[in-house]
Design a protein around this nucleic acid. Structure first.
Length: 426
RNA sequence: GUGAGCGUAGCUCAGCUGGUUAGAGCACCUGGUUGUGGCCCAGGAGGCCGUGGGUUCAAAUCCCAUCGCUCACCCCA
């Protein structure tokens, strides 16, 4: 058996990659409009970075990280999410002094050792954006609006759900109320919820079990336990979303898997991803920058899952086609082949996507190749034409052909040909 | 970590109450056109039937194991 890719690691092949490029390009364009700058950060970090940010007791840290010892014994981890590395870079380079409010985005792979399933891989890719330096509710709304716009410009329809998780002041009170509630119903919980009750009570809220859901309808709501500041913040967020005409639904059962979230959290949801429903999610993480040794600045961010977006695009019939050639050069005979080799280079220099067959195959075969790669035009270089110093230009869609006089100045000849081709895009 | 389903050509799959040389469609190559693609027709190439063991006169087919993939749970983008 030949070597295959690791479980949960996928190749993105020609034909699929174009959709990814389109997603990235759309997002980059929109992020730029919102004043975000790209930052590229490493994939490997010290393990402590993630333990300190995501939280020691989370599933991600406890059982999903690709963690291993470096040759010198240091514990390294392949990033399971993008916020921590970006904040690390922000702190390390003192980016807070360059702009009072930093808007950063990054694109790249993340790694979590989970069992793969639809829309979930061990190496997956995220587009993530962070705003550091402002706790204003306007930013919460703006960030959500930006994420929603990316989806909209891609032609995707998703729903936005928001919630507030409170802060260090008010969440403990809610937590206690929830624990008390669960204690009263302990005998009626499913096995998973019983476990969650001990380890992470908040998590019971998004249990999929019908019976549990039924009971939790009467459970205490986080929104009723918010402190005055958090309550006001949440009200402001909602008001600002309304001002921007962003549709959303408040879901007080929405929980996040990372410890650092506080106040606003949100998810972009779809029904078309199998068991996975979130194509994007994010929230506020005031206090995290300070926790990582930086200034005490608030932050908010979100991530979009690229595989999930690509899956949705495919599901909606929005996949991008494989990129095509502008022109194919079909050469007949050894002499023509040599001249075609030079010509194709001149065409590429002129900015055309030009390609040829180097094997000396039959014209029929070369025409077939031209058609297969979607070339709009084919240049036929046969000995007969070359003896007259000409080539045939064939419009593949209309099947019309014309003779073109060759020139010794190949670069200007190629530039002229480019003009002809651009006038007749097929 | 748990559960279920599936492994046959590059891809999608048929064949599986055991029975000769394992099939189809798509894709690929050649020809029908001495130098003209898409459609059509003809031909061709391409398989340790995931792997190992067992039952049997005989295994793609039945049994066991193992590996792999997929989906779901947990959890998450």
């Amino acid at each position: 058996m030949s070597v295959k890719a690791l479980k949960g690691f996928k190749d993105i092949l020609p034909g699929e990659v174009e959709t990814w490029q389109r997603i990235e390009q759309t997002a980059r364009d929109i992020f730029q409009r919102f004043g975000f700058n790209e930052i590229k950060v490493p994939i490997l970090e010290k393990t402590t970075l993630f333990k300190r940010s995501i939280g020691e007791a989370t599933d991600i840290v406890e059982k999903e990280m690709y963690t291993f010892a470096d040759r010198n014994g240091a514990s390294l981890t392949m990033r399971p999410e993008g916020t921590a590395p970006v904040l690390r870079a922000y702190v390390e380079h003192g980016l807070q002094v360059k702009k009072p409010v930093q808007r950063l985005y990054t694109i790249g792979p993340m790694f979590r050792h989970e069992r793969p399933q639809k829309g979930r891989l061990r190496q997956f890719h995220q587009l993530s954006a962070e705003v550091l330096g402002s706790g204003l509710a306007m930013l919460d709304a703006e960030v959500m609006a930006m994420a929603a716009l990316v989806l909209r410009e891609l032609g995707l329809t998703v729903s936005l759900e928001i919630n507030s998780l409170g802060c260090r002041k008010c969440r403990p009170g809610f937590n206690q109320a929830l624990v008390d509630f669960l204690a009263q119903h302990a005998d009626k919980l499913c096995n998973d919820c019983e476990r969650r009750r001990q380890t992470n009570p908040l998590r019971v809220l998004d249990c999929k079990n019908e019976h549990c859901r039924e009971q939790y309808k009467n459970s205490p709501s986080i929104l009723e336990h918010l402190c005055k500041d958090c309550r006001e913040h949440f009200t402001e967020v909602r008001k600002n979303l309304d001002l921007l005409n962003i549709d959303y639904k408040v879901n007080s059962f929405m929980v996040r898997g990372l410890d650092y979230y506080c106040r606003t959290t949100f998810e972009l949801l779809t029904d078309n991803l199998g068991a996975q429903s979130a194509v994007g999610a994010g929230g506020r993480y005031d206090g995290l920058v300070k926790q990582l040794g930086g200034p005490d600045v608030p932050g908010i961010g979100f991530a979009l899952g690229l595989e999930r977006l690509a899956l949705l695009m495919e599901h909606q019939g929005l996949s991008s086609p494989e990129s095509k050639a502008d022109i194919f050069i079909a050469a007949l005979g050894e002499e023509a082949l040599n001249r075609a080799f030079i010509l194709v280079h001149a065409l590429r220099n002129a900015g055309l996507a030009a390609t040829m067959d180097h094997q000396g195959r039959s014209l029929k075969n070369q025409m077939k190749q031209a058609g297969r790669m979607g070339a709009s035009f084919t240049l036929i270089m046969g000995e007969e034409e070359l003896s007259r110093n000409k080539v045939i230009l064939r419009d593949m869609a209309s099947r019309e052909q014309q003779d073109l006089e060759l020139s010794t100045d190949l670069s200007s000849w190629a530039a002229d040909l480019k003009k002809i081709i651009n006038q007749n895009p097929s």
